[in-house]
Amino acid sequence: MPPSTHDDEKVEQFSRLLVANQRRLYGFILTLVHDRAAADDILQDVSSLLWQKFDKFEPGTDFAAWGMAVSRLTILNWRRKQKKVPLPLDDQQFALLADEAVAVSCQHESRQVALRECLQKVDASGRELLASRFEMSRSVASIAEQLGRSRVAIYKRLNRIQSLLLDCINEKVQEEGVL
């Protein structure tokens, strides 16, 4: 699919939609794949698929919903091909979880705005811990080693911070619904 000048507009339209929605799709995929590297690969596959099928996409309809539907099939195929997944789910459980993932991903923008605000409630050391775990993708073991703390201590603290963030985000998203 070499883009000719003729395709320029299409490329731009597609990339605009994809850029606006890729993190939302990534969140959806990660919820059902549970592994970041695999989720990255699947997002890439899904994006190629979306580009190939972009002619069938009706402008003005929900790109994210379309993207999630395509992702869902891709993920299901991927799961079936794996010898072992850390969290096996039967088709019914997969479908139920995927529905929840759609619901959460639909709130992606509100959740992202809320996250920014909620992160202000986490102290600097907590944010650094989150950054090294998530932004820098360091393992809990390596963080624990560097800080001379037990892995359990790091886990506990990470869990506590995330639980606090989650409650805070939910509260803000709910509030937004009310206001």
Binding site: L30, T31, F134, E135, L165
Partner: peptide
């Protein structure tokens, strides 16, 4: 639901500059 929210949070936290 909580599971989906927690995984979604991990995804957001992994985004560059999020934290």
């Amino acid at each position: 639901r909580r599971f989906a929210e927690a995984m979604h949070l991990s995804a957001m936290l992994g985004d560059a500059g999020a934290i």
